[in-house]
């Protein structure tokens, strides 16, 4: 980060005389195009930020220090501990179970993105754009996002079961495919993936929809005059304008799918075997299931580091112009 960029600014902000295009279409109208000068520098603003710093220090910094502490020591009892350096990091990175969980989580995130992003865009294009149905459509599409994550798990735990769930019953008895997510690892994976698509595609759709609505009408009129087909309009008018929101959608979906815990925990508990044992599930098993402080600490730090990197990308994209 250079010192010249202004954090996450709205449309029309000017940095060093150069107009920075907004990273995302602003939701507010553009009537205020007047050049906005750079914010005043005032270090007393720290007093306003202090409560946040204190609260986050208690909820994040101190715990993280504890994790660092665990990760470099072998703790036998609270008073009896020896310094082991990076041994835990070495053993964790070589642990086949951790490696498998890491690859599994990456694979899951990749599949989630490949399915949810195009589906979300398609849905956004199909959503009603004006009239009384707009509000209804927004509410209905957003519904899965507001369901507690464990209830999402419960919903699919019931729905995908062959004996009492509609989904599982249809697959087993109408399609004639033997489907049982508690016994078969492929079925479990499909169930968790379907659940995530059901749960989070609406987020992509709502973001894309917000992006589409911010495209000025003349763009479409021009496309129409040029005789552009629906596909050409989408490809050359709508899609380029969606870049900003889709970047946010991709990063959010990557981040959240990479730390998924509750939903697969409820549906499969990480099984059958290790089939749906993602990083968070494995980590919480090592941490509060087995109380292996050293490995759990090292694991936590590595996990945190990966998220930090992804987060840095996210932040850079959001605060830079992005195009």
């Amino acid at each position: 980060m250079t010192t010249s960029d202004v954090p996450a600014k709205v449309a029309g902000s000017q940095v060093a005389g150069e107009v920075v295009a907004p990273a995302v279409p602003p939701s507010a109208s553009n009537e205020e195009e007047a050049p906005r000068d750079v914010k005043p520098k005032n270090n007393r603003a720290w007093w306003l930020v202090l409560p946040v710093v204190v609260s986050v220090a208690f909820t994040a910094v101190i715990p993280l220090m504890t994790v660092v502490n665990f990760s470099v020591q072998d703790v036998f009892t609270p008073t009896d501990r020896i310094f082991v350096g990076l041994d835990w990091f070495r053993s964790v990175t070589r642990d086949p179970e951790v490696r498998a969980a890491f690859l599994r989580t990456l694979m899951f995130s990749a599949q989630v993105l490949i399915i949810e992003i195009p589906l979300g865009v398609l849905l956004a294009v199909c959503m009603p754009r004006r009239g009384a149905w707009v509000s209804v459509a927004l509410v209905v599409v957003a519904l899965p996002l507001l369901i507690p994550w464990n209830v999402v798990g419960t919903i699919w735990q019931i729905f995908a079961r062959g004996d009492i769930g509609l989904g599982g019953w249809v697959v087993n008895n109408v399609l004639g495919i033997n489907f049982n997510y508690t016994l078969d690892s492929t079925d479990a994976w499909i169930t968790v993936l379907a659940m995530d698509v059901w749960h989070w595609t609406p987020l992509v759709a709502l973001l894309a929809y917000a992006g589409l609505r911010s495209i000025p009408e003349p763009y479409f009129q021009a496309a129409q005059i040029d005789g552009a087909s629906a596909w050409a309009t989408f490809r050359h008018v709508q899609l380029p304008r969606l870049r900003g929101v889709l970047t946010i959608a991709i990063l959010l979906r990557f981040m959240d799918s990479f730390m998924i815990y509750t939903e697969p925990f409820v549906v499969t508990g990480g099984g059958p075997g290790n089939a749906t044992s993602f990083l968070s599930i494995l980590l919480s098993k090592i941490a509060v299931g087995q109380f292996d402080l050293g490995p759990a600490g090292a694991f936590s730090l590595l996990y945190f580091l990966i998220v930090q990197i992804a987060c840095y990308v996210f932040f850079t994209v959001l605060t830079r112009s992005g195009r």
Partner: peptide, 15 residues
């Protein structure tokens, strides 16, 4: 602040 929003809760379980 953003990194705390994005951090996996599992990381903070033990402490």
């Amino acid at each position: 602040l953003l990194t705390n929003r994005m951090a996996p809760p599992a990381v903070f379980l033990l402490p």
